[in-house]
Nucleic acid binder design. Sequence first.
RNA 1: GGGCGAGUAACUCAGCUGGUUUAGAGUGCUACCCUUACAAGGUAGAAGUCACAGGUUCGAAUCCUGUCUCGCCCACCA
Length: 900
Amino acid sequence: MTDIPTRYDPRKIEEEIYASWSGENLFHADEKSPGKTYAIVIPPPNVTGILHMGHALNNTIQDVLIRWRRMQGFETLWMPGTDHAGIATQNVVERELGREGLHREDLGRDKFLEKVWKWKEDYGSTIIRQLKRLGCSCDWERARFTMDEGLSNAVKEVFARLYEDGLIYRGDYIINWCPRCGTALSDEEAEHHEVEGMLYYIKYPVKGRDRLDKENEDYIVVATTRPETMLGDVAVAVNPKDPRYSGLKGKTLILPIIKRELRIIFDGDVDPEFGTGALKVTPAHDPVDFELGARYGLPRVNVMYPDGRINPLGGDYEGMDRFECRETIIEDLKDRKLFVRAEKHVHAVGHCYRCHTVVEPRLSRQWFVKMKPLAEDAIRAVKEEKIRFYPDRWRKVYLDWMENIRDWCVSRQIWWGHRIPVWYCRDCLKYENVRDVEISGPGKPGIYVGKEPPGKCPACGGTDLEQDPDVLDTWFSSWLWPFSTMGWPEDTQELKTFYPTDALVTAQEIIFFWVARMIMAGLRFRGEIPFRDVYIHGTVRDSTGTKMSKSLGNVIDPLDIISEVGSDALRFSIISITSQGQDVFLSKEKFELGRNFANKLWNASRYVLMSLEGTDLSGGIDQARLSLEDRWILSCLNETAEKVTKSLEAYRFNDAASALYDFIWHKYCDWYLEISKLSGDKDTTGKVLVKVLKAALRLLHPFMPFITEEIWQKMPEKTSKWIMTAEWPAPGREELDKFADAASVRQMETLIGVISAARNVRSFWNVEHSAKVDLLLNAGGREDKKLIKENTRHIEQLARCEVKAVGEDVSRPGQSVSALVGNIKLFIPLGGTVDIEKERSRIDKKIADLQRYLGGIEKKLSNKSFLEKAPEDVVRKEEEKKRKFEEQIRNLRENLAAFE
RNA sequence: GGGCGAGUAACUCAGCUGGUUUAGAGUGCUACCCUUACAAGGUAGAAGUCACAGGUUCGAAUCCUGUCUCGCCCACCA
């Protein structure tokens, strides 16, 4: 046993253990197994991704849940996989091409997709490998990818069903457009950040009166943050109640530079308070203006190319980038004396969530899903608590979003993704470009929607068919994940066994993107909720509170941490510092908590194994031979098992972790191990040491899977070959209950109190470490006396003293100090070694503290209402407290007096 | 403009279904100790008017109202 190193080195051990679990096929979930099941699905990480701290937290939590349930005897499924991340992946591959001076158009669609697949084969499993390194016990045989055949089939099925149900349409709306990625984005994919921009005030002359030297009558001043969009202006809107503009009825304005005539419209939605109260209307470049345009039948003038440059409708500005155009227009307006002023203006600007380019609200023909009909059931499921959020506050966030849901723009102008399963017949439609086709619902001739190419047009029999060039939003496959991964639309055994799943663990950022949509999809297509519990963990931030992200360079790489302190330490640390739903602020030092704990456990186990030599562990534990500390530690174990189990049930992971930390470190190691060294009954002590350690290891296993397995393998008398599949120690099981003993807890607390008090005296009065002191104990109660007599050796050894006398008639010797523990009074003669003058101020301060507390209690007890209204036991406790304080004060005074 | 979260020891955070807590933990700090599991350790200790102001209550870190500071989310103020 001495060959076990004193320092725990996780590096080699962790990978070896993972390989052996894998070799034993312990991760596999059997869908045919009868009995209770527990299933979760991984929030699929992006194939281009590498493991970051958010993943580490997210997957540790899931692994804790699944390992715990597995040990509880559930048939557990943890379905892993990755998502194809259309835009992000395409960007990565395009960047590679760019290094060779190529564009995707140079390759063509098919060749480009080949490249992406190749890239995916080469690099797409990085994150899977990293999750394994973290210890995740996913059923890897079932790993899915959103572009797999099965999942793609589900995507097409869903698209076709939605189309048939009239929930899909294609039309012109303002969408969020990323000029860099060249594609539409959903509302959720445009991240709004507060930006300090400018609000520009510009004069729009009144037609026929374009002499600009007069006030008011000759022009209107409009305010805008995006002057370049004025190229697409078709009107100016004012509030009909705004007196400043009442004289403008029937007039026309002239758009500067372009010289287009602009209508003046009067609409109550215009806020007279903002800017000048006059709003320039650009229906093709702003959602509000689009609405106004639709209301008043205004033309839509789109002045930009997809890449954000100005198109020929922008006149002289054609070819300019939108921001360059902004500057230029301002300069030109200044030249023409049409520029009034610019003021700083903070507003929220949308940014592409993949490349952070400023998003352009832009008129575009896209595919949309009608969401309101889907949301109804999803709202009900949460209101009826079929699905619960942890913490509960997210329920409200979810419902707010769901109740105000807007249609979902699902088409993307990229190549990597699920191609929209729509074919157009040129003969029927007579469109030159299929992008021009508008579709408001099913039944339009020349449109075919289905899983496979139709071969010929079902309407006219023509063969000149073209598939829609766009692909679907990646989330259009992710929202099907809980059931598409289990073989839907087939009614597979997997679905029957594991759907609905039990818990979803994810971050708040993804509630709308993913959680909400999965609920809608599950209810719509499978007819059942996808999961019962949604646990929303916090966001991982750095120590300054900013979100960790690669671009900010503030990341702590989990793999660095793993290679420094091990996966167990990472897991335990991160679980310990994340209380339910609070954000996690990380710094490297925080991982020392887990590292030190692993080391402590390692060494304690090492000691236990060493101490076992020569002991006989055969046979069960004979209860009659249990000592006080044996009964105590077994009771504490029982209590800990209960606490850990309850905490996990309530998704209170840090509570579970801290219960284990406290039990293993401060009870088992600090007290039980130390006392066990003094045991006279080595066989019984050995049995208890092992029994408690084995149970503690199992309780800890979900949090620190590797080290617990490693130690387990060295343990004698195992009931299970692997700790990973060992039974969860819960009260009521494994005979923990019969050792629970409240009296032992009370007595042990007293004993610990006596030992600590004696140590405290030694330390307080600066007694030399090696010096032995005498100890006299005044104890009246029978139980106390018995306790001390039976444990004299423990007191003497652990407090480095010699017990000289015990009894109710023991009185204070001269030149001694004393301490109180319950009803026991300790006397320690210190002879002339004490410099009382030096200590007087410390004691005085202590007395003052105690008196402050005492004052509070006395005040309470003299309050008539308190005595009348407070429960009896509370009053009694207050009285006890009072007595205790009084006695402590008296005692300290006596200590002083003893040396006067 | 709405909504949410946070403000507790030097630092990072628990506790917040009101009284078993003289408000806890980890780190840091102080003193002593390499005591044959562990110095990534042991023993002991110092350290907090629980952001502020009111209110409810016999009793508030905990419940209510308001204020301030910070952070996040949502929203068509151009």
